[in-house]
């Protein structure tokens, strides 16, 4: 965390015991180290999830061991195992019951893509139906891989998180993309096959015209 001690400038004079930082950073730091996972353990990966929490691998070392089985108390859903047709409505409801800010880890090949179960009953990847932040490969992943995913998610929360959850705002993300288009030379982009990009380019051209 960026901490500024006693900055002396012509606008701001601080006493010795005041610390200035971005509130976002502080909130992220708190959030990332107190992830409460909601284990949505359906199948084999659930056993590895138990192994991750048990004695040898000990998830508590990374500040994410408080498994709570009530979605109201959790902010990290770990979907461990395949999700089938009958289970998906349950998964969606539990996801909606969780409070913001919330994240989702899709653990294992089955949750991420359906894995070996390309059959009539298995949903081919939960990211088709709910948002996913982190995918863990493996069938099932080793506990070390899950721990790595949680560390990566903590890193992501620290980097991208905002105190009012702007990073979850998909409309806001679109605006940021427009800025990228604006920087690039519009003439060098082939947008003939991408209607989204065409819209973006038109908007960028409008913005440039308006500025001029």
């Amino acid at each position: 965390m960026a901490v500024v001690h006693s900055v002396s400038s012509d606008r701001l004079e601080l006493p010795e015991n005041v610390v200035i930082g971005r509130l976002d950073l502080l909130a992220n730091w708190c959030r990332k180290n107190s992830l409460w996972p909601m284990p949505f353990a359906t199948a084999c990966c659930g056993i590895e999830l138990m192994a991750t929490g048990a004695a040898k691998h000990d998830l508590a070392r990374f500040g994410a061991e408080v498994f709570r089985f009530s979605p109201r108390q959790c902010d990290l859903m770990i979907v461990a195992g395949r999700v089938v047709m009958k289970m998906l409505p349950v998964l969606q409801r539990i996801w909606q019951q969780m409070h913001e800010p919330k994240w989702c880890i899709s653990m294992g090949a089955c949750a991420s893509t359906g894995g070996v179960f390309d059959t009539y009953a298995v949903v081919q990847g939960i990211d088709r139906f709910i948002p996913v932040d982190m995918y863990v490969p493996g069938c099932p992943p080793r506990p070390e891989q899950l721990i790595q995913a949680i560390i990566d998610l903590q890193d992501k929360i620290q980097r991208e998180g905002t105190i009012n959850g702007r990073e979850f705002d998909t409309a806001g993300r679109q605006l940021r993309k427009r800025a990228l288009v604006e920087i690039a030379n519009p003439l060098s982009i082939d947008a003939s096959r991408n209607p989204n990009l065409q819209r973006e380019l038109a908007a960028a051209a409008d913005a440039v015209a308006g500025r001029n």
Binding site: P89, Q92, Q96, T119, Y120, A121, P131
Partner: peptide, 29 residues
Amino acid sequence: FTAHPLRKDYPLQGRGERHNFPVITRDHS
């Protein structure tokens, strides 16, 4: 569900039932 999936005339990948769910995005939740 209407079909009987282990009959031989039912395909392994099903008839699209597994894709027939509402999609929840970040905006919904």
